[in-house]
Design a protein around this nucleic acid. Structure first.
Lengths: 227, 227
DNA sequence: TGTACATCAGTGAACGCGCGTTCACTGATGTAC
DNA sequence: TGTACATCAGTGAACGCGCGTTCACTGATGTAC
């Protein structure tokens, strides 16, 4: 059968990644060890180098996979909501981020926790990293189109310049008002998820499910019907 | 002079902590090495054990110091604002957190980044960890007292139960409305600061100063004048 | 004030361990004629 | 279809390194009489 060797190879790469993730979950990314993976696989430590040229290359692959998985989860949730149900889209996005993070805490920590020291993410991780943000930006564009009222409060010239730069960078035309609320909502979302994943809600909130959805609902209303 | 030995000892402890922080900033908390600290101090690696019984004990000391320093910075900023200027107090709190984090990224990562693997924070870190939260809670209490209108949106029974539990835990009487907005603002604050410290605002926001204060202002108004 | 003793800081060697990476190699699997 | 050769997966030994922690020790600093 043609490609048999390649299929076996792809499977072993997947095995290595899976074991690496398990190790990161148990011991943390910085102590990820190629030798330990080889040991788990029952092969010589040098054999890993047939699949990844170095430890950093494995880390990069894991980071890209994590961004892609989060992106896919968010896209998936977003397409399931009705396009004109803006609140529903926002809540779906938030829930997708949280669910993915809780299901994959090691991967979440890898991309949103303390950067792995001595490791510099290469440029090629950027497209994967921005994948889920496109869903958020698309939502902000639609929100912007339906918002009737505008904020009275004046922004500083520096802030206005910044949001203008953001528009040119993303090629969108979202108003300052929606942008600032959207960025705040973005921070709220990942801040709360990080709190939960990293254990800062212990002894603060027990039933995070209920609190999280209540907060998403509240912030979502502010985001959509801002006066 | 009585206590000379003790003063020298205290200074060396401070030196060890300072070098440890520098090392964490450079290489990350997980690769904090007692031997490297001893090397920097020009002493035998075993000498460190006169001051800290183990690596974990040093980490615990650093974590407590970090929480205390953040707490002190927040308290300091908060007392400088006029007590009845609620928005000013909120902005001062947010700015204090961000400034401290940017000035001490290693310490910030130590307490709000990925938990150090294999390290379990002992109970005695809790009082220090909650120090800055008391400032936030005091602010929420004062905001609650001045808010006239209440939200129309109904909360789920589970969420209401959760906020009730929070009130008994903290011994305060903040309404569900203010609590939910306050927790959202809390997440927004640390989410945004983490984004900045961990490098996720690169190529997104250039002038974070301007954006951050604009966002604090916006969220502060929502927090205080919620209709 | 001077001596005897206890306390403490710091030394250096050693323990057992794990790590990333390289290299020459052995066989098995595929490919070209 | 069968043979010759190239490709590839995996081995095992070795390199040089750093780590946390223990232990018996040497001197210097303080304390008690």
């Amino acid at each position: 059968v043609a490609g048999l060797r390649e299929r076996v190879r792809a499977e072993l790469i997947a095995d290595i990644k899976r074991l690496a993730c398990a190790q990161i979950a148990a011991e943390g990314a910085p102590s990820l060890s190629l030798r330990a993976i080889a040991r788990d696989l029952g092969m010589a430590s040098s054999a890993i180098y047939r699949y990844f040229a170095s430890r950093d290359e494995l880390l990069t692959a894991l980071i890209i996979d994590s961004y892609e998985a989060l992106g896919a989860a968010v896209e998936d949730a977003s397409t399931k909501a009705k396009p004109d149900d803006l609140l529903g889209r926002w809540i779906a996005l938030g829930q997708a981020v949280r669910r993915w993070a809780l299901a994959n805490p090691a991967e979440y920590g890898l991309i949103y926790g303390t950067p792995v020291p001595g490791y510099k993410a290469p440029e090629l991780t950027i497209p994967s990293a921005t994948r889920y943000t496109e869903v958020l930006i698309a939502l902000l564009v639609d929100i912007d189109a339906t918002r009737s009222t505008r904020s009275i409060r004046a922004l500083s010239p520096a802030a206005r310049r910044e949001y203008k730069l953001f528009r040119t960078r993303t090629g969108t035309n979202v108003s300052d008002d929606v942008l600032i609320d959207g960025l705040a909502a973005w921070g709220m979302l990942f801040g709360t998820v990080s709190f939960e994943v990293f254990g800062h809600l212990r002894n603060v909130i027990d039933d995070v499910d209920a609190h999280f959805v209540a907060m998403l609902d509240r912030v979502g209303h502010q985001l959509i019907n801002r006066s």
